[in-house]
């Protein structure tokens, strides 16, 4: 089914590394490859330090890729790229940040915060046109156009995250990288923002890369999920398939730990712990393997056979 879908973004063997103080190099992301199709919500799930944010930041080019490539609609966008492409990518790939308390300039009015991107790409607009665009973006996220003249501190966390979303929308992006967009928000506000993100996606045909650690939220909003552990993607599948047949022991551990708002379930819950030593990769090396129907898992030949068997018996 993936063959006929348009690929918006493709990562090939992406590696992101950071220089350490002592002169060493820390590889935060290793050999990551996946494609995101137009109109879908792709979830990237992992624990803190897994490298999920580094991938998101590499895509919007906040930090560079040390090797591998990032293709936006088939064109390489990492490293040195022509100016026109740069301008296009800046518009078409936008990011929503985790903490709306930290991601808005406290000294700027909402009007400037929302339209800063427009100033930066340097397209000539009259002041009237710009104002109209800000008003439209604010309305789209459920805020009043009058709010443009206020400062961020006058808003609640949920409203601030809406401002962050408006700032991304005004650029008319195709791909939005949402890095933990609701984890800093209050429970009652989370549902509002999730609904807003879904509604905007439907209305504009946006593609989302949704980065999060909370599998229950990711399950609700995504079409496909990639699970990342210590810089490597260990499993990728359609969302319901991943929950039906989690194969990699790390995925299984992660799913087993999801808190459920159900006392009877929680009290019986057994949390499995992932032990990296459970793999025997001494001779048989792991590879990125399709075990059927677009369900990928990092496994060696022996494990892959066992996984295929498990899927077959499960059905």
């Amino acid at each position: 089914m993936s063959g006929e879908r348009e690929t918006v973004l493709e990562l090939r063997d992406l590696e992101v590394s950071f220089k350490l103080k002592g002169g060493g190099v820390f590889k935060a992301v290793r050999g990551v490859s996946f494609s995101i199709y137009k109109g879908e919500t792709f979830g990237l799930v992992g624990e803190s330090g897994s490298g999920k944010t580094s991938i998101g930041r590499a895509i919007v080019r906040i930090n560079g890729a040390s090797s591998g490539s990032i293709l936006y609609k088939g064109r390489e966008i990492s490293g040195r790229i022509p100016k026109e492409l740069d301008r296009e990518v800046v518009r078409k790939i936008q990011m929503i940040f985790q903490d709306p308390m930290a991601s808005l300039n406290e000294r700027a009015k909402v009007d400037y915060i929302v339209s800063e991107g427009l100033y930066n790409i340097g397209v000539k607009r009259t002041e009237e046109e710009r104002r109209a665009m800000v008003a439209k973006a604010l309305l789209e996220v459920g805020l009043l156009p009058e709010f443009a003249s206020r400062f961020p501190h006058e808003f609640s966390g949920g409203q601030r995250q809406r401002i962050g979303i408006a700032r991304a929308l005004i650029m008319e992006p195709e791909l939005v990288v949402a890095d933990e967009p609701i984890s800093a928000l209050d429970v009652s506000i989370r549902a509002q923002v999730l609904n807003l993100l879904s509604a905007i996606q439907r209305a504009k045909g946006l593609t989302y890369l949704f980065i999060a650690h909370d599998l229950s939220v990711v399950r609700f909003i995504t079409d496909r999920i990639a699970v990342i552990n210590k810089g490597e993607i260990v499993e990728l599948a359609e969302t319901e398939e991943l929950f039906r047949n989690p194969l990699h022991p790390y995925t299984r551990a992660l799913i087993s730990a999801i808190p459920q708002p159900d006392p009877l379930v929680e009290r019986k819950k057994v949390v499995t712990v992932y032990d990296p030593k459970c793999h025997d990769y001494s001779t048989d090396k792991p590879a990125w393997t399709d075990v059927g129907g677009g369900h990928f898992v990092l496994a060696n030949a022996k494990e892959a056979d066992a996984y295929r068997e498990r899927i077959a018996s499960g059905r």
Binding site: S188, A191, N195, S216, R219, F220, P261
Partner: peptide
């Protein structure tokens, strides 16, 4: 309003 209790594809109760 919890996603765990929501129905996929439908808006969450908010």
């Amino acid at each position: 309003s919890l996603p765990q209790l929501g129905v996929k594809g439908k808006p969450l109760y908010s």
